[in-house]
Simulated assay, not measured.
Amino acid sequence: MAAKDLFHTAVKIALQKENWVITDDPLRLEVGGTKFEIDLGAESLLAAERQGQKIGVEIKSFLGESPLTDYHAALGQFLNYRLALEISQPDRTLYLAIPVRTYESFFQREFAQLSVERYQIKRLIYDPINEVITQWIE
Results as ranks from 00 to 15, higher is better:
A3D: 10
D5M: 02
F7N: 09
A10L: 01
A10K: 00
L15A: 05
L15N: 09
L15M: 14
E18W: 02
W20C: 01
V21A: 13
R28M: 11
R28E: 13
L29H: 10
E30H: 07
G32W: 08
T34W: 10
T34K: 15
K35R: 15
I38W: 10
D39M: 08
L40P: 05
E43D: 11
E43Q: 14
S44K: 11
S44F: 09
A48H: 10
Q51N: 13
V57S: 04
V57W: 07
I59P: 01
K60T: 01
K60H: 05
S61Y: 02
L68G: 11
T69I: 12
A73H: 11
A73R: 15
A74E: 00
A74L: 02
L75I: 09
L75E: 07
Q77P: 08
L79M: 15
N80D: 14
R82G: 02
R82I: 04
L83Q: 14
E86R: 14
S88V: 02
S88P: 00
Q89D: 14
P90K: 12
R92Y: 07
L94E: 04
L96Y: 01
P99N: 08
V100T: 13
R101L: 11
T102W: 01
S105R: 07
F106L: 09
F106M: 06
F107L: 03
Q108S: 07
F111C: 02
A112F: 08
S115Q: 11
S115W: 00
S115R: 11
V116L: 12
E117W: 07
Y119R: 03
Q120K: 14
I121T: 04
K122L: 10
R123C: 09
I125Y: 03
I125W: 03
I125T: 03
Y126R: 05
Y126K: 03
Y126T: 06
D127I: 03
P128Q: 01
N130R: 13
T134A: 06
I137A: 06
I137R: 13
